[in-house]
Design a protein around this nucleic acid. Structure first.
Lengths: 106, 106
DNA sequence: TATATGTGCAACCAATCAGTTTCACAAATT
DNA sequence: AATTTGTGAAACTGATTGGTTGCACATATA
């Protein structure tokens, strides 16, 4: 099933999961311990995150380790970059204005 | 009303609105012309975007101009930066590995 | 082999969401 | 003064969401 990354990161619990598994892979049970919900609710969140490939799984015996797929996070960065370009340009323009003012003062 | 930015950008129509008004302020009518929905639906999206301060309004007679609040977009960038840090570190680590391999070849 | 453990899936439910239609109202135009 | 134009708000609707409970099933452990 296709999934939208932006819709995936819209939920605060899912963002917290992402933060948790960013540095080390974790099992659903271990992840669920950090939240005030059932294991099944976390399992559903993990399914959504996996479906949009923000998270990958690795089976190890009966345990499944979930970890962050950083490559996919870059897609958000890519989307954001078009706006970053704008605010950097505006910042430079402001910089020029300030430089001009400074010059005129001299 | 408080609003979550991530929930606001989850909707594809709202992301399209953001893209539209990123470079120039626009009225709801002008924005709605670009979509296949009613003006009222766009009005609702604009309300949500305004509530989380991703978008600001400027009244001009009976017209209201909506434009992007770049400052707020930076909050997404800030959230993303913790993960950018990780992928940059990993990239450098990979870089070191490659450098070592290259050295050994010599 | 019997039991415990780790996990995903399906069915259900209340809440929220995105959209429509209808209305209200102020500012511009005739 | 009457009409048109630009807009937001309210009420309603079907779809989606996040959560729960109950179940199934494979892998460990006793």
């Amino acid at each position: 099933m296709r999934r939208d990354i932006f819709q995936a990161i819209a939920d605060p619990t899912r963002r917290a999961i992402i933060a948790l598994i960013a540095l080390q892979a974790m099992t659903p049970n271990a992840i669920a311990e950090n939240f005030n919900t059932t294991r099944q609710a976390i399992s559903k969140h993990l399914r959504i995150l996996t479906e949009c490939e923000l998270v990958k799984q690795e089976q190890e015996g009966r345990e499944i380790y979930y970890s962050l797929e950083l490559e996919k996070m870059k897609e958000i960065d890519k989307w954001l970059s078009q706006y970053r370009k704008i605010w950097e340009t505006r910042f430079n323009q402001l910089d020029n204005v300030l430089a001009t003012i400074k010059k005129q003062k001299k």
